[in-house]
Write a protein that binds this DNA or RNA. Sequence first.
RNA 1: CGGGGCGUAGCGCAGUCCGGUAGCGCACCUGCCUUGGGCGCAGGGGGUCCCCAGUUCAAAUCUGGGCGCCCCGACCA
Length: 571
Amino acid sequence: MRWSRYYLFTSREDPRDAEVASHRLMARAGMIRKVAAGIYSYLPLGWRSIRKMCDIVRREMERAGSVELTMPSIQPAELWRESGRWERYGHLLLRMQDRQGREFCYGPTHEEVVTDIVRRDVTSYRQLPCNLFQIQTKFRDEIRPRFGLMRGREFIMKDAYSFHTTQESLEEAYEAMRAAYCRIIEACGLDYTMVEADSGTIGGSSSHEFMVLADTGEDAVARCPSCGYGANVEKARAGTLPPPEGDGEGALETVDTPGKTTVADVAALLGVPAQRFVKTLLYETEKEIVAVLVRGDREVNEVKLKNYLDVDHLRLAPEEKVRELTGAPVGFAGPVGLSDDVRVVADESVRALEGFVCGANRADAHHVGVQWDRDVRVSEWADLLLVTAGDPCPRCGTALEIHRGIEVGHIFDLGTKYSETMGCTFDDDQGQARPMIMGCYGLGVGRTVAAAVEQNHDADGIVWPLPLAPFQVELIALNVGDDDVRRESERIYDELTAAGVEVFFDDRDERPGVKFNDADLLGFPLRVVIGGRGLAQGQVELSLRSDREKQPVALADAVSRVRELLAQSST
RNA sequence: CGGGGCGUAGCGCAGUCCGGUAGCGCACCUGCCUUGGGCGCAGGGGGUCCCCAGUUCAAAUCUGGGCGCCCCGACCA
């Protein structure tokens, strides 16, 4: 492709609204254009990367035994009512009506539609398992779209669904998908980690996420450097925390702590470390009020809490509520003598404490020397801890590390959640109808491309990994007005193109600086520069975008050298 | 949806307090010049100042309403 005939407009300025590298650089490189909040056009150069990603995904999915189909983006409300998600999915679901007033939504995911397809076609255990995938545009009316393709409202996703007669069969498919996801992300040349995850609104039991590591990632993952344990912090567990130092004896006493509402303030006042505090947080759910006890220096993991309580909504109780329940302003709640109306759940982090400090349910007062059993009865213990760096790995005890990551893929064991509610059953070998066991497997296509940029760029532009680069080679004719340069660059362009190399030929009548800067911005892996100075010595210049070290090459060897370098890079 | 900010040429911005001819840089067009890291000189084109209403002799500027976008908090590929 020659630039003069392509549709590409680069920009020297960052778009005003771009905050992260991938958004900034893809916009400047003329790959994407925002149309509305969280909605983008993929311009020709951007679309080439997307297509390459799709090709990789398609290849690996087929290799893993999944079969491609395409389902509609507009879906009838009745299917969503059947699964119960028309109500539960909430505002993420973009709803609309047709001219008859019938209700539809723009599909944010396709469990309902695919389950409907399979329940109509598959009736016998002999026809299972099956595994279907599509690559398609989804719409989720995200509360806050941002970061360009990393969190759009409209986005391209690969989604696959598998159906099974037994758990073992599902696990086989799950494993095949897991391996396929690893191959896909590796094929893109990205640094990633697979972690245990919370399954969120999709539902189901076990699930894993594929995280591309990048500081701008919106997720945090806990990873054990020694045994390989990894989990989204929403899900991550820690081993037993070392107990805090200090004495555990003593009677229950009440001390004055005027105006000291935070653990840090009270700790400073009393000279007792925060680890010896029990922090009491009152949460309000759609069902009840719950007091959550966690160690004074730690935070509650609200995702864990939500799952433990099995509720849809969770928030800290408002001040009036706290006052009503504890008889004190926010900051003095404690488990001792708390109203029986409040359900109390204690995090494991406080179990080992003896003689601890907590709020006295009275303004300006705390208890010290509190003992479990003697002073407080807790009936529910649960893991509600938000893991932090340095916590012991739950498997081997090594200090955990926390990394930022971009969630590019997520695989779920759905169990029979959808097949039961939607009547997706098969007859077993006894002729008995049983619900199918399902798995679902999502991968963000645009997000992975954005993650690749996030992980591969420098101050001057993108440094594409070869598999996702829109073009493999940028050919620069330094001065198109020079006959020799013109002739030789045209010749090399023709030869490379004929050899099947994806060459982008900058044949514009621009100054060298403009071309170099644009080439850095676009970030194609290999660069060939043809200028009068080199030609005078029968040479052209090759360089890799990754290191930009200039290698002079004899004119006659240029094409074969390019092919060699590409062959090396793709292994 | 709560809290904050922005909307002026294709892009990035100034001008808005304190009402009075709509500006700058980049990009674009013409000519000359130049050609190995965003060159130089000269000339030029381009505006619904987000929309509607109000105040005023006069509104980008003041007032009210609306729309859009961005940032900070609860969701997800």
